[in-house]
Structure formats: structure tokens, C-alpha cells
Amino acid sequence: MKFVLEVEVDAGRPAEETAGELGRILRYWGGNLNHYALKPGDGSAVYDSRYQEVGRWRIVEADGS
């Protein structure tokens, strides 16, 4: 399986906040992964600290590489 995370953290945010916001997103969603079976097809929207959707994570079949 492959875990794919796509997040846009710079939209409307000062550059100095980007690293902190991405760190928060990774901690929050990493902590929630135990609520999923982690099989292909699983996934969820990712929200920033303003509760705006900024991306998604998903589990896909590995491509063999």
C-alpha cells in the first residue's frame, strides 16, 4: 500500500507560518490514522487550524516500485 498526503499550506498565510501549520497538520492527522483500516480506498480531507480544507490523504495500491 502507499500513503499519499497532499496539502497546500501557503494559501493566504505568511511564509513564516507555513512550517508551523504543516507540523500541526501532520501531528493531528498522524494521530487520527488509528481510526482507519489503512486499506486502499481509505482517506480523508485535511484541514488547517482555520478549519479550512487544505488537502487530502489517501491509501492507494502500491505500484510495485
Rank of each mutant, 00 (worst) to 15 (best):
K2E: 14
L5W: 07
E6R: 08
E8K: 12
V9R: 00
R13P: 03
P14M: 03
E16W: 10
E17F: 07
T18C: 12
T18D: 10
A19D: 08
G20Q: 12
G20R: 11
E21N: 06
L22K: 08
L22M: 13
L22H: 06
L22F: 14
L22Y: 09
G23N: 13
G23P: 01
R24N: 15
L26D: 10
R27P: 01
Y28V: 07
W29T: 15
G31M: 02
N32F: 07
N34K: 15
N34Q: 13
N34D: 15
H35F: 13
Y36D: 06
A37Y: 03
A37F: 01
L38P: 06
K39H: 09
P40G: 07
G41V: 11
D42W: 04
G43K: 08
S44A: 12
S44R: 06
V46G: 04
V46D: 04
Y47P: 02
D48Q: 02
D48Y: 01
S49T: 14
Y51G: 02
Y51A: 06
V54S: 01
V54Q: 00
V54C: 03
G55I: 05
G55T: 10
W57A: 03
I59M: 05
V60E: 15
V60M: 11
E61C: 08
G64Y: 02
G64C: 05
G64T: 05
G64P: 02
